[in-house]
Amino acid sequence: MKYYLRIFLALINTASKRYLEYRWNTFGNLVTSTLSLILVIFFVDIIFSQTNNIAGWTKPEVLFFVGTFRVFSSLLSFLYLRSINFIPKYIQRGDLDMFLVKPVNVQFYVSLCFTRVYEIINLLPGIVLIGYALQSLGGVSWEGWLLLLGGVICGLLIFYGLYFMCATLAFWFVQFNSLTSIYFVANSFLCFPTDVFGKNGSLVFTYLIPLGFIVTVPVRIFLAKDPPLFLILSVFFAALSLWLSVKFWNYALKHYTSASS
């Protein structure tokens, strides 16, 4: 465990140096992230100028959801998004050979080799929005915060497993350039509570494709819309998603034929 923690810290260290070289990019990303948050607030404002609630969610609740979603998406961008996006290219070009010979778990390495350190800064606008929404929602107990934190961590693991399995498909596709588009499609359905997709849609996105457990359920638990016991389901889906990703990756590795000479 210590060995992997040391590798992870070394990867973060390398990534920090890379991004410090392009400081204006980091600043640009913070500006984009803040601007995007302002536009989302504007969007929410326009919707709630026409109604008092959407699928049972009030405006402060939706703002809290959006803030939490921002925190979640910053964390996944910081941790593994960029690294996973590169997997199809490693397989297509035969670069995976390089990772296979390293004295480290390959799935661990390809998942975390390109952390995006500057995304940590992008947590800030999300946290500010959560704080703003809480002014209307009132005080929350520390248990609530712990449940939310646990839910978001489970969400990160669920999304990791699902997205990593999508990337693993590249072992069978000669060309797989659309992985990031899968992320954007998922993102479109994650950025609003799954309840807005109607009863059937909500069921599909909660139990069939557990996208609902990524942000909606943790926020619902926090807002006491769902019982805390739902977190057990989150843990179950996180464990299942992680386990499946490992199994699928190991199975896929057996089908890997290097593309290099």
């Binding site: 919707i47 109604t51 699928a55 950025c191 109607g198």
Partner: peptide, 13 residues
Amino acid sequence: VGLLIWLAAASGG
């Protein structure tokens, strides 16, 4: 997604 959000708003009155 835009459509679903606005339909949810409409069905909410």
